[in-house]
Amino acid sequence: MLDTSKRTIFSPEHEQFRDTVRRFLEAEFTPYLSKFEDAGKVSREFWRKAGETGLLCPTAPEPYGGLGLDFIYNTVINEELTYAMASDCLTLQTDITLPYIVKYGSEDQKSKWLPRMVSGETISAIAMTEPGAGSDLQGVKTLARRDGDEFVINGSKTYITNGQNADLILVVAKTNPEAGAKGTSIVLVEGDRMGFSRGRKLEKVGQWSADTSELFFNDLRVPAENLLGDENRGFIYLVSELAQERLSISISAQAAAQRAFDEAVKFVKERKAFGEFVFNFQNTRFTLADMKARLQVGWAHIDWAVQQHVDGKLSVEDAAASKYWHTETQWMIVDAAMQLHGGAGYMNEYPIARVWRDARVRRIYGGSSEIMKELVGRSL
């Protein structure tokens, strides 16, 4: 269980909400985790139950079915989901796709989609990455050509979280290819549109309960009113929302690191070697001490970054630095925790194996560590 007694950003209301989240996950998620992983996706029933309990999109405005709460509630959900070893599929909807529709959607788009996203009836995805364009969004090749009152979309996307389940996809496409990044738009595509198809569910190293897919658009037509915000403003929208996305990943990384540490402490206090508990060896204690110190720093920084974001002060550069530090620190702690498990750590029956394999991708998606360093470096 996450210890929040020394944290600085949570009110009693936030902690009451955390208790609700924990009880829900204990009843509706943890007993079914292996089933979700075997299926390669979280069930739609779980999505709907999460919506009923208020675990989806709590920041959505009240007129559209949300609770109108602050991002600290998202933080609580993210921490508890990750500590329970959930994949990042629900946080993608709550932290990443929802804000685009809230901030840039038309009244019709918000009225149609927000209540369904809050309830779990609609599962969303954002389709940015392509086979030839990952962290560099300027390299997007998917085209959305205006044809009268419609857009005609052609192209493909890959590594799309929620790709198999998604009812609504926010597709990043070029509407003016000659303008480079300034010719990028975001178009809403319903999952049942003719011309849209889902490729294979991709087999990943980790995050097994997240349905990650290829998506294809072949002369797919959508009405012009499916354009999100203004035409050719998509790149600006994407950049403006990347701070929250990267903060969300930072939170996940910190919670995963804490779970890895807790698993390591529990294991070494129970396992013996050479007639001694592994915990009693100086190397073990020194390793755990280093991990604990880094976690202490990490939680203090998370609280600072979340409060900065709630206050509207978290810069793109600070968010990039946060994602870089927390995901790299997560990997250091998770790998050290596995090492303390010895051979048992490589066995899937132990939680540390799941935490370890799920952690690796966080250094890549949302912008790789190398890109994060480049962004921070440019700001110096």
Results as ranks from 00 to 15, higher is better:
residue 2 L to C: 06
residue 4 T to R: 10
residue 8 T to I: 06
residue 9 I to L: 14
residue 10 F to Y: 14
residue 15 E to M: 12
residue 17 F to Q: 01
residue 25 L to I: 13
residue 30 T to A: 09
residue 37 E to A: 02
residue 43 S to M: 07
residue 46 F to Y: 10
residue 57 C to A: 08
residue 60 A to W: 01
residue 63 P to A: 09
residue 66 G to P: 14
residue 76 V to E: 08
residue 81 L to Q: 13
residue 82 T to F: 01
residue 90 L to T: 15
residue 98 L to M: 14
residue 100 Y to C: 01
residue 100 Y to H: 03
residue 101 I to A: 06
residue 108 D to H: 10
residue 108 D to K: 09
residue 111 S to H: 04
residue 111 S to V: 00
residue 114 L to E: 06
residue 116 R to S: 10
residue 121 E to N: 02
residue 122 T to C: 12
residue 129 T to H: 10
residue 134 G to Q: 10
residue 134 G to D: 11
residue 135 S to V: 12
residue 150 E to S: 10
residue 151 F to D: 02
residue 153 I to D: 10
residue 156 S to H: 02
residue 158 T to P: 04
residue 161 T to M: 06
residue 164 Q to A: 14
residue 166 A to T: 05
residue 185 S to Y: 03
residue 198 R to I: 15
residue 213 S to F: 14
residue 213 S to H: 15
residue 213 S to P: 10
residue 218 N to E: 15
residue 219 D to Q: 15
residue 224 A to R: 09
residue 224 A to K: 12
residue 227 L to H: 01
residue 249 I to H: 08
residue 250 S to R: 05
residue 251 I to V: 13
residue 257 A to P: 15
residue 259 R to N: 07
residue 260 A to W: 08
residue 281 F to G: 02
residue 282 Q to P: 00
residue 287 T to E: 09
residue 287 T to H: 03
residue 289 A to Y: 06
residue 290 D to W: 06
residue 295 L to N: 13
residue 307 Q to R: 02
residue 313 K to A: 14
residue 313 K to H: 12
residue 314 L to G: 02
residue 319 A to L: 05
residue 319 A to E: 04
residue 323 K to P: 04
residue 324 Y to H: 07
residue 327 T to A: 06
residue 330 Q to A: 07
residue 332 M to T: 10
residue 332 M to L: 10
residue 333 I to T: 06
residue 338 M to F: 09
residue 339 Q to L: 12
residue 342 G to F: 01
residue 342 G to D: 04
residue 362 R to C: 04
residue 367 G to W: 01
residue 370 E to G: 12
residue 376 V to W: 03
